[in-house]
Design a binder for these strands. Structure first.
Length: 95
DNA sequence: CCGCTGACTGCGG
DNA sequence: ACCGCAGCCAGCG
């Protein structure tokens, strides 16, 4: 995977406003990628300087190993989870 | 080349 | 609502 793709994904994530979220698929689409998995892979490499916690699964849940931290950071921005699940209809970022 | 793995997704039962 | 499954695609052994 090339450096350009990497940077495009990072740019999309960096642009998500506070209090809003995107799914991995959303990020992939906005970055011109076909696979959401690729987004997850890129995020796992380096999340420094990124609001990584604003990216979650399309069904409103988050990856198990990040769950606690991610929900806490989102809560701080007013994105509340009910039973460990975010309501995408309310918080998904649409321009 | 093959098979397995994962910060994923949508569909069908 | 809860599985399972196929499709996804780059990396690794």
């Amino acid at each position: 995977m090339d450096e350009e793709t990497f940077e495009r994904v990072r740019a999309v994530v960096a642009s998500i406003p506070p209090g809003k979220v995107l799914s991995y698929g959303d990020v992939a689409a906005r970055a011109g990628l076909s696979s959401p998995r690729l987004v997850g892979r890129i995020m796992s490499e380096d999340t420094a300087d990124l609001p990584w916690y604003r990216v979650l699964r399309s069904n409103g849940t988050v990856a198990e190993h990040l769950r606690h931290r991610q929900l806490e950071l989102l809560r701080a921005e007013g994105v509340l989870a009910r039973d460990g699940r975010i309501n995408m209809r309310d918080h998904r970022w649409a321009d």
